Simulated scan of single mutants.
Amino acid sequence: MVEAFGAKPAPIRIRMMGGTVPTAEIVDALQVPFDIVPLVNADNNQHTANENMRMGNYINGVRTLYSLVTSPL
Rank of each mutant, 00 (worst) to 15 (best):
V27F: 12
P33R: 00
N50A: 08
E25I: 04
R13Y: 11
A49D: 06
A24E: 13
M53G: 15
G56T: 14
L65G: 15
G56N: 14
L30R: 03
L73H: 12
G61Y: 07
I59P: 03
E25L: 03
D28Q: 05
T70P: 11
A7C: 02
P33L: 04
N45F: 01
V40C: 13
V62E: 04
Y66E: 15
I36G: 06
A49Y: 07
E25F: 04
M1T: 09
N52R: 08
G6T: 05
R15Y: 12
F34M: 06
V40H: 05
T64E: 07
A7L: 10
N52E: 08
P22S: 05
A4K: 03
A42G: 07
V27E: 03
M55V: 15
N52W: 12
A49F: 02
R63P: 00
L68P: 10
L65F: 14
V2S: 00
L65R: 14
N57C: 07
V69P: 04
P33W: 02
P9I: 15
I59H: 11
V37D: 04
P9L: 14
N57F: 09
N44F: 12
Y66F: 12
Y66D: 13
N50V: 13
A49M: 15
N52V: 06
V21M: 05
T70D: 08
G56L: 15
H47F: 15
R54W: 12
V69L: 09
I12L: 15
I12K: 11
E51S: 06
R54P: 01
P11R: 06
K8S: 09
I12E: 10
V2G: 01
D35H: 14
V40K: 09
P38N: 01
L68F: 11
M17I: 08
T48D: 10
R15E: 06
R13K: 12
T70S: 13
P22C: 00
M1V: 07
Y66P: 01
P38W: 07
P72K: 13
M17L: 10
M16F: 13
S67F: 04
A29Q: 07
I26S: 02
M16C: 12
A10E: 06
P9H: 01
T20C: 14
P33S: 04
P72Q: 14
V62P: 04
K8P: 01
G19E: 04
L39C: 08
V62F: 14
A29N: 02
M16V: 09
Y58R: 05
A29H: 03
A29I: 00
G61E: 11
A42P: 00
T20D: 14
A42Q: 11
Q31C: 03
A29V: 00
G19C: 02
N60D: 06
A42E: 06
T70A: 10
E25Q: 14
N45K: 14
N44P: 00
I26K: 12
I14W: 01
G56H: 15
Q46F: 12
I36Y: 05
M55F: 13
L68I: 02
T64R: 09
P11M: 00
G56I: 04
N52K: 11
D43S: 07
Y66R: 14
R15M: 12
N60W: 06
